[in-house]
Design a protein around this nucleic acid. Structure first.
Length: 491
DNA sequence: AAACACTGTCATGGC
DNA sequence: CGGCCATGACAGTGT
């Protein structure tokens, strides 16, 4: 059954083939007379057969290459195909302890105990030795993988030559855990040199509501108070400094409220537009700016709204919120409402006869229709359009910031996931590399074992340093002199 | 006082 | 072409 004749057939044919000039990269032939029959002892042959079968199986592994960064580049490996599915060899991660990276497997027992588990293919082969021994060389050849490039002879020596290569690239760089932390919201929000720009007094006024480009200067009543004739004709009966809203006296505030209440007689008075919404720019969702987490500021906002509601309940149309003072800590939220916003004050000053929410939220057609219902001066029209523009932009800015925050949260989450995935892949790569090192080590030992059983015509062993085994595209194995082998390597 | 967060506003570009 | 929207930038305000 375990006839070594079957085993040595390929090598006998090797001798025959090698006798043909030009077959192996220059036609170097080296007759390898392998002991056949019983003259060399069955036990030795059996052991050799097993080693050979394992070697043939391992040969398929020549393509099993985990590309390590500059650590393991072998053209012969890359030229071979196809690749054995990795799963067939059992990844070391299934074992509590990974196989040793160095050649520690010098005994067959070690193979049985380790490699057979690591490489199920070999295990399978080892348990079916008899049938394997009965294979004809063609059957054995079927187990040998073809070479992708016939002109380039794959060399088992290439594997042997790599046996000493250490896989130093296993160490993966730990994912930068600080990256996520570094991507702080603050970093994204901060704009350098913000405070370096100083505005002139006019600029400050523009910040207080002047529309520099879209609206002619007369559209700004704050400026127009002293400079625009059209505005001078407006007597609102109150004085305030736009730049000092907090200094708005209670008397002035009451005056403004009283003034606004005069609009109750108008067809679209502030109160008619809805008590809680009148003069109240759209606050689509105050929680937008601070999603989910109620900040002290949002609490204050709520309190402010409550106070405003009280005001409205009292019949006051004042919204009581300034663009910057809406979050002002209510010193006396009941008796002292927050000052009006600039636009609200301007609207009051110019006697705009409809509420802020309508100015801002009405569709453009309705808005234009609303404007046609009143005879407004150019100043008033400009102010109304500015109020509308600013109000819409305010909402847009709030939404924009909300989206920005959500985007940052999403990206941070994604970053964490990618970092975890990267670490997982790095670990997997390390395990693959260990497995590959083990397989290489095993292959080297099998290679040496095969050589130890080869004999020339005089019964002398072949030197592993002088000869090498080569596999041809048809799967045959040849014994080639090392010097010729080296000559063939460049191809 | 400095740093930071939040907000409103403007300018700009795209639709 | 006007209106709307999105967004970066800036400044004011509060914590």
């Amino acid at each position: 059954m375990c006839s070594t004749a079957n085993y040595v057939l390929p090598l006998r044919r090797t001798c025959e083939v090698l006798a043909t000039p030009g077959r192996l990269c220059g036609g170097v032939s080296m007759p390898a007379n392998f002991p056949g029959g019983k003259s060399h002892g069955a036990p030795q042959d059996t052991e050799m057969d097993m080693a050979w079968q394992e070697l043939m199986a391992i040969t398929e592994l020549q393509e099993f290459e985990v590309s390590a960064e500059g650590s393991y580049e072998t053209p012969q490996y890359q030229a071979m195909e196809p690749m054995v599915p990795m799963g067939s060899y059992g990844m070391p991660q299934n074992h509590p302890e990974p196989p040793p990276a160095a050649c520690e497997l010098s005994t067959a027992d070690t193979f049985d105990g380790c490699y057979s588990e690591e490489v199920p293919v070999c295990h399978r082969l080892g348990t079916n030795n008899e049938s394997l021994y009965g294979h004809s060389d063609s059957q054995l050849n079927q187990r040998m993988l073809p070479i992708s490039s016939p002109s380039c002879q794959p060399s088992l020596m290439a594997l042997r030559g790599q046996m000493n290569m250490s896989c130093t690239s296993q160490g993966h760089r730990r994912a930068n855990a600080c990256l996520s932390q570094g991507l702080s919201r603050h970093m994204l929000w901060t704009t350098p040199g913000q405070s370096s720009h100083t505005r002139s007094a006019d600029d400050l006024e523009s910040d207080s509501g002047l529309s520099l480009g879209s609206t002619p200067p007369l559209a700004s009543p704050d400026n127009a108070v002293g400079s625009v004739p059209g505005y001078q004709s407006v007597d609102v009966g109150l004085t305030y400094s736009d730049g000092e809203p907090d200094r708005m006296t209670e008397q002035a505030r009451r005056a403004s409220i009283h003034y606004s209440m005069n609009y109750q007689n108008q067809p679209h008075s502030y109160l008619h537009s809805g008590a809680h919404q009148s003069y109240y720019p759209p606050q689509p969702n105050l929680s937008h700016a601070q999603p989910n987490v109620p900040t002290p500021r949002s609490v204050k906002q709520q309190g402010q709204v409550t106070a405003l509601s009280d005001l409205y309940d009292l019949g006051m149309s004042s919204r009581g919120s300034s663009q910057h003072s809406i979050y002002t800590k209510p010193q006396d939220s009941i008796s002292t409402p927050a000052p009006l916003s600039r636009d609200e004050r301007r609207a009051l000053a110019l006697k705009i006869p409809f509420p802020m929410d309508k100015i801002i939220n009405l569709p453009v057609d309705d808005f234009n229709e609303l404007l046609t219902q009143y005879t407004l001066t150019d100043t008033q029209l400009a102010l109304v359009r500015d109020i509308r523009r600013r109000g819409k932009n305010k909402v847009a800015a709030q939404n924009c910031r909300k989206r920005k925050l959500e985007s940052i949260i999403h990206l941070e989450r994604e970053l964490n996931q990618l970092q975890a995935q990267r670490e997982h892949l790095a670990q997997e790569r390390l395990e693959f590399q260990r497995s590959l090192d083990f397989i290489k080590c095993h292959l080297t030992e099998l290679y040496a074992e095969v050589f130890s059983h080869l004999r020339d015509e005089d019964g002398q062993p072949y030197s592993i340093d002088e000869y090498c085994l080569q596999q041809t595209p048809d799967g045959k194995i040849y014994l080639v002199p090392q010097t010729n082998m080296q000559k063939c390597e460049p191809c």
